[in-house]
Amino acid sequence: MRLVIARCSVDYRGRLTAHLPVATRLLLVKADGSVLVHSDGGSYKPLNWMAPPCAMTKTDPDELQAEQGVVAVWRVVHAKTGDSLTVAIHELLHDSTHELGLDPGLVKDGVEAHLQELLADQIHTLGPGWSLVRREYMTAIGPVDILARDHTGASVAVEIKRRAEIDGVEQLTRYLELMNRDPLLAPVTGVLAAQAIRPQARTLAEDRGIRCVVIDYDALKGSDDAESRLF
Rank of each mutant, 00 (worst) to 15 (best):
L93S: 08
L119N: 05
T81R: 08
T97H: 12
M56E: 01
L36A: 09
Y175S: 04
T189D: 12
L85I: 00
T17W: 07
I166Y: 05
R211H: 06
S43P: 06
V213A: 04
T24M: 07
L178N: 04
P21G: 07
G101P: 10
R135K: 14
S228I: 13
V73S: 00
D83Q: 14
V111C: 13
A113D: 12
A205Q: 02
A120H: 10
L102V: 14
Q116E: 14
A201P: 07
L185A: 10
V71L: 10
L230F: 15
A113L: 09
A205N: 05
A154I: 13
A196W: 14
V29Q: 09
V213K: 03
A72M: 11
K30W: 08
H114F: 10
D32K: 03
H94L: 14
L100F: 12
Q171H: 05
S9P: 01
V133G: 04
L28S: 12
L93M: 12
H90W: 01
L92M: 15
D145P: 06
L126R: 05
T139A: 06
V70N: 02
L100R: 07
D167P: 06
A148F: 11
V4G: 04
V71D: 05
E165R: 13
R13Q: 13
L27N: 00
L126G: 01
P143G: 08
E67L: 14
D103Q: 10
M179I: 05
A219R: 07
S43D: 14
K30E: 12
A140R: 09
T81E: 09
H151C: 15
L204P: 02
E91Y: 01
D83Y: 08
M56F: 00
C8H: 01
M1D: 10
R25N: 09
L204T: 03
D167M: 09
I210M: 05
V169S: 01
G105M: 05
L126S: 08
H114M: 11
V35M: 00
C8N: 09
S39N: 13
G127I: 02
L176R: 08
L20I: 11
C54Y: 01
M56A: 02
